[in-house]
Amino acid sequence: MASKHVCFIVGSQSPLQFWTDPSHPNGPLSAQSSITTSFIPQKASIAEAKFQGGWDLIQVLPHLQELKQIINSGLFTKAANSNPIWKPESDGNFRLRSAWNTVRSPNPKPPWVSSVWFAGHTPKFSITAWQALQDKLSTRDNLHFLGPNHDRSCLLCNSVSESVNHIFFNCSYSAWIWQVILRRISERRKQKKSLSDEENWIRSKFKKKGQTYTLVRTLLTASIYLLWQERNSRLFQKKKTHKRFLLSRIISATRSRILALKLEDEDSEENQRISNSFNLPLFSKATDPKFCHWEPLAAYEIKLNPDASLASDTASIGGLLRDHLDWRPSPRPQGYNPISLLC
């Protein structure tokens, strides 16, 4: 399959054989009975046929047009060796991405991609969410082929038929968990009718990348993963977890992930409120320095600015001193940013 995407830059001392080299898609030229000529010796290399005799002989042999077309598609150089080139890439270098694109049929990305495969996602959470959004989880509703006597009741609430849209989040067990999470992100509403609707709401409401963007998506994928784990635990191990404990596990897993990422976000009221509800620090994005007015100091007085650092993960102190003659900036270490002397 890949051979049709590879060709050789043939050098003047290339050992590749003109008639017996197997790189042609249909096999060696010698095996193709329609292509024969006595002008090129049987043991001639491609380099000998090209650089010594040229391709002029093909011009006068109309019955070798197929051979001419095959040969003219190659690339030749005066270099000594032969080098393979990867035709899908303009520079001839092989790349796994272009190889993958040559053997697959690309399809447009589904809209929920940004809610599942976002930067900083947790792989095991995202894989389960990816399956759920495509309705590929082995819910009892999807296992109808087991027969009409197969129990289809939900393992979380033991009531209606178990399906993806029921488990996430219309089951009484999961609906309570999701309602608490929605209240924590300052959203008071009923759960949507389907998982796709919930994902679409998150994608539409939280568009700007940052800590809150990643937080709400991690909450969604973690909820899907841990609810599915709880469902399987009840089915295979006969173990049940109270919904309050499962909620605690979802929030704990989400907090651990966000704290590890240390993402920045705008210092808006909404972002601050959501971060506080999950007991998370909000790392504000650096903004342009603001200059403020300093009241005149009396002689020998000192004013310190303890919040002078422009970085979110460091701290520094800037200060101004005044002696009895004039204003003078306080001594500072080498490399100290003088702008931090201004609040």
Rank of each mutant, 00 (worst) to 15 (best):
24 H>F: 11
229 Q>F: 06
177 I>H: 02
308 A>P: 07
175 A>H: 12
182 L>D: 00
195 L>G: 00
272 Q>F: 00
144 H>E: 12
92 G>W: 01
34 S>G: 08
195 L>S: 02
148 P>C: 08
173 Y>H: 08
187 E>C: 15
45 S>K: 06
10 V>A: 00
165 N>C: 04
297 L>G: 02
80 A>P: 07
174 S>E: 05
3 S>D: 15
125 F>I: 00
323 D>K: 05
80 A>I: 08
161 S>P: 04
147 G>D: 02
304 L>K: 03
123 P>Y: 06
81 N>D: 14
2 A>H: 07
5 H>K: 07
239 K>N: 09
325 L>W: 12
297 L>R: 04
216 V>H: 02
166 H>V: 02
82 S>L: 02
193 K>C: 11
11 G>F: 08
335 G>T: 01
232 N>R: 07
72 N>I: 13
165 N>P: 04
38 S>H: 09
219 L>P: 01
140 R>T: 03
32 Q>T: 05
288 D>W: 09
168 F>Y: 09
53 G>H: 14
85 I>W: 04
150 H>I: 06
193 K>Q: 13
151 D>H: 03
264 E>V: 10
145 F>L: 09
292 C>M: 12
21 D>H: 13
335 G>Y: 05
229 Q>Y: 06
141 D>Q: 12
142 N>P: 00
261 L>M: 07
56 D>W: 07
176 W>S: 13
121 H>C: 15
95 R>M: 08
257 R>C: 11
325 L>F: 10
291 F>P: 00
195 L>K: 01
8 F>W: 15
102 T>W: 03
24 H>W: 13
174 S>N: 04
295 E>H: 11
339 I>K: 08
277 S>W: 00
277 S>N: 15
341 L>D: 14
197 D>T: 13
173 Y>L: 02
76 F>Y: 15
33 S>H: 14
32 Q>D: 15
335 G>M: 08
131 Q>Y: 13
18 F>P: 02
343 C>P: 09
176 W>H: 13
335 G>A: 04
14 S>A: 08
28 P>W: 02
207 K>R: 14
176 W>K: 11
